[in-house]
Design a protein around this nucleic acid. Sequence first.
DNA 1: ACTTTGACTATAA
DNA 2: GTTATAGCCAAAG
Length: 112
Amino acid sequence: MKTTFQDDVIDLVLQIPKGRVTSYGAIAKFLGHTRGARMVGWVMNNCQVINEARQIKIPAHRVVNRNGLLTGRHHFETPTKMQELLESENIKVENHQIQEFESVFWNPQELM
DNA sequence: ACTTTGACTATAA
DNA sequence: GTTATAGCCAAAG
């Protein structure tokens, strides 16, 4: 089993510090796919399945679009679950948009 | 093998 | 400021 794109994405998402968020594009870029943000989204969709199949939790709520908007909220159990999770990590969310986004944004490059 | 789709982003108008 | 378009590449049908 070779390293797949989704494995890399998941691994990175799991390393997002609590109270921080990142964007699809940042993840894609970190993996070498500067404009492959769409694939990250696809992987996140699989994350749901993995969450139940592997019984591991993937902090998908820490992944938002570059706008700081909770675009993936509709894919959660409930449309408000994502915001709840973020708020429980001291991330301010208003109108499905992260406040002080630049302050909570986490660049994967910091990992190194 | 070909077409469609996707939780996106950057650029142009 | 918004809306439109193209780019990107991997999976599913």
